[in-house]
């Protein structure tokens, strides 16, 4: 069944600097599309039936939609802030629900066990109380005042620090993380997870970053983020059920999962159910 609210959303389908005229075939919500560029280098996305799909070129990526977007692509003001390095991390395919990929990105309690000695380590496993809200005026999920002890929070971090985080969900398959910036106290590093839903249980993930870090070579930044995401991949491919359960009863949240609870509630409210299951199986 086609999910109309999600059909009208924007999705990442390619890296702007890697487009070719011949294009690349991929899938968006089960539909075959081709992502290419014209002779001037502008992105062109076409569907199998010949339709030309709407396109946006933003945050290093090509964005498109199978439907008629009612909203403009979300804004990340930090993307235009001078002094930031913009990092295209590259695509990773995962056999999981696109919504499970986003939910995992919103989770900090797994750091000591999945990103051991990098983003977390025993015995520093406690998740302090933080704040979560659905900001009605912008219709986004926000988690703020999140704190976690990290042995090596970023490529530029020398030792363990308590890192501050904020999370933002501006679209059903997009999550933006704001994180303590070791070289520039007072600023936030921006790390995003842009997810392309290929099918309800298959997605492509395009992480992207806007960092204040003049020191670390670009390749090291890319490897660090790929390492983190690939540690998550073996988790994401082994969750049951494959689809994200939106109704309570199937999974048991705790206080540390408040962001996930709000995300699921927000998805359900909007009918964003591509990759979700509504009734406990």
């Amino acid at each position: 069944m086609t999910d109309t609210p999600m059909l009208n959303e924007w999705y990442p389908v390619g890296i702007l600097t890697q487009l070719t005229k011949a294009g690349r075939d991929t899938l968006l919500m089960g539909e075959a599309i081709n992502v290419a560029c014209d002779s001037l280098g502008a992105p062109v996305v076409s569907a199998e039936d010949g339709r030309t799909l709407p396109v946006r070129a933003r945050y290093g990526h090509v964005w498109t939609s199978l439907g008629s977007p009612t909203k403009e692509l979300f804004d990340i003001p930090e993307a235009d802030q001078p002094g930031r390095r913009l990092v295209d991390v590259g695509v990773v395919r995962v056999k999981c629900s696109p919504l499970r990929a986003v939910e995992n990105f919103l989770d900090i309690a797994h750091f000591p066990f999945v990103h051991t000695d990098i983003l977390g380590a025993e015995p520093h496993t406690e998740v302090q109380r933080y704040e979560v809200q659905i900001r009605e005026e912008v219709d986004e999920v926000w988690a703020t005042k999140v704190k976690f002890y990290q042995p090596q929070a970023a490529k530029s971090a020398a030792g363990g620090i308590t890192t501050d985080y904020m999370y933002r969900v501006p679209a059903p398959t997009v999550s933006i993380l704001y994180k303590t910036c070791p070289p520039r106290p007072g600023e936030w590093d921006v790390i995003t997870l842009f997810v392309q839903p290929m099918a309800e249980d298959l997605c492509q993930v395009w992480p992207w970053m806007a960092l204040f870090d003049d020191q670390t070579p670009m390749t090291d930044l890319i490897h660090f983020q790929q390492m983190i995401f690939l540690q998550d991949r073996s988790i994401l491919e082994n969750q049951l059920p494959r689809l994200l359960p939106l109704d309570p009863g199937m999974e048991i949240p705790t206080r540390a999962d408040m962001t996930s609870v709000a995300y699921r509630r927000w998805l359900k409210r909007h009918g964003f159910t591509y990759g979700a299951q509504l009734v406990a199986a």
């Binding site: 051991t116 540690q231 073996s234």
Partner: peptide, 16 residues
């Protein structure tokens, strides 16, 4: 370890 090969958490004792 490398991504995709997790370490053996069972080699460590429970933290408390």
């Amino acid at each position: 370890e490398m991504p995709g090969i997790h370490r053996l958490h069972d080699l460590k004792p429970e933290p408390g």
